[in-house]
Design a protein around this nucleic acid. Structure first.
Lengths: 121, 121
DNA sequence: CAGGATCCGCCACGATACTG
DNA sequence: CAGTATCGTGGCGGATCCTG
């Protein structure tokens, strides 16, 4: 979960790059996109995410959720029930961003290249 | 420069996520976007990049260039002159991808939120 | 000038145990 | 159930030195 991105220097034209870097930094975690994918479909509980994202550890899941929340991409709702219940939902901003990101698959489709094997009809 | 992204598991809906992850992985380096930014403007020499991207080390620059080249995002042209001369240029694929990525700044503009200070026009 | 070879520090990620 | 607290690890990135 990369946090800091001061965009320390680069050149003048780098302002744009800097912004892009910042945006990508907000979903930089290995599982961030997976979490967004799940939470975009509707409210999801912690344990659900833990199962959906097969292989993620509790710690990383927590950190990822916190990061996304900090960046205004996730809404955390706590139900003060006796066994705790917490739901996470993607914000509108997150949905927009996620849409733009999945839009990259269009690019990937047009250039299936460089892939280890690929398919190619 | 993260290379491997087996997208080991996740869930079914994760295919999309997997693809996005793969695309982002191709420009994952700390300086990859900076390099793309420069090479998109036209052919650039190694030393030029080294200066433009202030703070980058020779090794990382080389690795970044190699990665981008491997992924078909950069064209490497060697001129067999006596002092070596090598030029790097972004491919069309790279320009397309870079355009989509800079498109993220639009999103960032609409949600200046979460930034340390800033917001409210 | 362009880049290979080394050595090293740091941080994201992972595995596990414990708790309200 | 939903986390927090600890400890360990791999690999990216940085600093140099050397060469065709």
């Amino acid at each position: 979960m990369s946090r800091k991105n001061a965009c320390s220097a680069e050149e003048a034209a780098g302002r744009e790059v800097c912004t892009v870097l910042d945006v990508l930094g907000r979903v930089s975690g290995k599982w961030s996109l997976g979490v967004l994918s799940e939470t975009t479909r509707g409210p999801v509980r912690f344990a659900e995410l833990e199962r959906s994202l097969n292989g993620i550890s509790r710690r990383i899941l927590t950190l990822t959720l916190r990061q996304l929340e900090e960046n205004g991409l996730l809404t955390r709702t706590v139900y003060p029930t006796v066994p705790p219940k917490v739901e996470y939902t993607a914000t509108d901003q997150a949905r927009e961003l996620y849409a733009r990101l999945t839009g990259l698959t269009a690019w990937a489709a047009r250039h299936s290249a460089a892939a280890p094997h690929a398919d190619a009809p």
